[in-house]
Every structure is written in structure tokens, then in C-alpha cells.
């Protein structure tokens, strides 16, 4: 069979550590899975602009305002870059956005939580970007060239955001009692959603052997989650904040932290659309789309007029 030969060649290429490029032959399941993952990632970047954008106009000083603007601009840039990378798989941005607006495509569950205080901006950078980096550094080793290169570039900026978020938390933790309480409250609210955003535990989400072999998925959710926890707990200790998990303990023998039970019911509710902000986030995106339609139409009409004049 022709296809079997093609699949064998495709898998040999990946096994040898080479990248698959847009014009290379690829199995349909590979293409579909990548479109799903990459567009979900792109959507997460632009929906993620909303909870953070919520605090740009209220940032506590000019320096923090500039840093937050730059960060949100980075997220928008990641979104654009990822949509373009997804387009190399033969689907266009309009269709991808339609999938987002109709609820067919998902975005990261974490952005369905509200940003209630300024400290949440610190918590997002520290925890949410921190968790995302764990996932994305693994994906940077993936087999699809455009996605893996995007991840390398995006991870560099995310590391920056992660440090900025931690720095915000550090200032708050060393600040007035009110500021410290604000930081602890943000950590309390964002900790569990952050460790949940790395996906269901391995027993609920068995890794397809095929996706691992194709280097679409690089590591199991639990393995990534463990790395995130091991890295983050000492950071919290260092600035004198406590992780809101009474069962959390360090296991000397394994060298890892063991965490308490995760409320997966909450996670699946949020995924289903029943998080605190699902409806609000989606409405913000569809409203922007509707409000912007006449602008996009005008740009197209003007470009056509110009083309006619030039002809």
C-alpha cells in the first residue's frame, strides 16, 4: 500500500529527529491533531489578553503599566504567530476564529477565572506562564517544524513574563500587610487552576502511543505538572507565601513534592463551559468580532478600489 510506505517514511523521519515541514506528506490524523493543538494554543493567547488587559488601565505605577502593556502585546503577537503557523496546515484564520466563536475549539481553561486584584497579574505571570513554559519547552522538541520553532521563540518571551510575574509577587510579599495579603489571596485562587491547566491526570488521559511516537505529545500531563510543582514550591517559600495545599510535602526519597487531591470535577466543569468567566470571555471575543466587521469590510473595499485604480 502506498500509504503504508508513506507512513513508514514519515515515521522514520521523525525517529531520526528530523522536522516535518508544511509541504511534506503527513498522515491526516497528524494534521488534524496539530491543527487542534496549535489553534487551541493561539486562541489561549488571545483570550488570555482579556484577564490581563483588565488591569492595564489600573496598573499601580507607570513602570508596571508599561511592563503589562508589553506583556499583553507579546501575547497578541504569539497569537498571530501561532495562527500563521496553523495556517501552514491548510486552514485559514477566519475558519479557526469561527471555531473559537462557536465553541467548537477550546482555549486554556485557566482564562475562565477572573482577575480580581492587581496581585492576580503577578500570579498569572508567575504561575500560569510558569506552567505554560513547562508544557511549551517540551513541545519545542516536537516534530512539526513551524510549531516547534514557534515554541522556541515563544518560550523565551514567556520566561521573561514568568520572571516579571514573580517580581510583582515578590514586591507585594515584601510590601505592606495589605499587599502581602493580596499576594497570598492571589496565590490561593490561582494555585489549583494553574496545576489543573496542565491537563487531566495520566489515568484519565492515557497518552496515545501514536502521538508520542509522532512527537506531537512529548511528555505526560502528570510529568509536566510534577516539574512545575517542584520548581514553584521553593519559589513560594523564598518570598514567604504559602501554597494552599495542606497535604503538600517533600518526599526525600523521590526528590519530588507530593500534592493533595486535585478537584477534577471543577476542572471538567470549567472545560464544559461552567467556569466563572467562560461566557464573559467568549462574549468579549464575539463582540469584538462583530464590532470590527465594518472595519474589516472597509479595508477590503478600499483595497479593491485601489487595485481597480491601478489596473
Amino acid at each position: 500500500m502506498e500509504d503504508e510506505k508513506k507512513i513508514a517514511a514519515f515515521e522514520a523521519k521523525i525517529a531520526a529527529g528530523n522536522k516535518i515541514e508544511p509541504k511534506d506528506w503527513m498522515p491526516e490524523a497528524y494534521r488534524k491533531q496539530l491543527i487542534r493543538m496549535m489553534s487551541q494554543h493561539a486562541h489561549s493567547e488571545i483570550v488570555g489578553m482579556l484577564p490581563e488587559g483588565n488591569w492595564i488601565t489600573r496598573a499601580p505605577n507607570l513602570r508596571r503599566k508599561a511592563i503589562l502593556l508589553a506583556k499583553v502585546q507579546d501575547e497578541a503577537g504569539h497569537g498571530l504567530y501561532l495562527y500563521s503557523a496553523t495556517e501552514t496546515l491548510g486552514i485559514d484564520r477566519t475558519e479557526l476564529l469561527e471555531q473559537l466563536h462557536t465553541g467548537k475549539a477550546k482555549y486554556s481553561s485557566i482564562f475562565n477565572y477572573p482577575t480580581l486584584t492587581w496581585a492576580d497579574i503577578g500570579a498569572i505571570g508567575w504561575l500560569v506562564d510558569g506552567a505554560a513554559i513547562m508544557n511549551q519547552t517540551a513541545l519545542a522538541r516536537g516534530s512539526y517544524g513551524p510549531y516547534s520553532r514557534a515554541m522556541v521563540r515563544i518560550c523565551k518571551e514567556e520566561s521573561f513574563h514568568n520572571r516579571q510575574g514573580y517580581e510583582i509577587m515578590m514586591h507585594l510579599a515584601q510590601g505592606t500587610p495589605e499587599q502581602k495579603a493580596m499576594a497570598q489571596d492571589a496565590l490561593n485562587r490561582w494555585w489549583w487552576p494553574s496545576i489543573m491547566m496542565l491537563g487531566p491526570s495520566d489515568d484519565q488521559s492515557p497518552n496515545s502511543e501514536q502521538l508520542m511516537r509522532w512527537k506531537v505529545k512529548m511528555e505526560s500531563n502528570d510529568a509536566i505538572r510534577q516539574r512545575f510543582i517542584d520548581r514553584t514550591v521553593p519559589q513560594a517559600d523564598f518570598i514567604g507565601l504559602s501554597i494552599p495545599d495542606k497535604d503538600l510535602k517533600f518526599n526525600e526519597a523521590t526528590g519530588h513534592y507530593e500534592h493533595g487531591p486535585i478537584n477534577w470535577e471543577e476542572f471538567f466543569e470549567v472545560i464544559k463551559g461552567n467556569g466563572p468567566c467562560n461566557a464573559k470571555r467568549l462574549k468579549a471575543r464575539t463582540d469584538a468580532d462583530k464590532k470590527g466587521r465594518w472595519v474589516r469590510d472597509a479595508a477590503v473595499a478600499y483595497a479593491e478600489k485601489k487595485k481597480l485604480k491601478a489596473a
Partner: peptide, 22 residues
């Protein structure tokens, strides 16, 4: 300009407006 964040008519304009606000 920063009030536009996340509600621009197209992603490229979101980026432009944030950049100019910055």
C-alpha cells in the same frame, strides 16, 4: 488606546494599538 486591548477589529490592530499605547 490601552482600553482597546483585546477588542480591536482585527488581531493586527490589537497589536498596533497596544504598541502605540506603550
Amino acid at each position: 488606546l490601552s482600553e482597546w486591548c483585546g477588542s480591536g477589529p482585527i488581531l493586527e490592530e490589537d497589536i498596533a494599538l497596544i504598541n502605540i499605547a506603550l
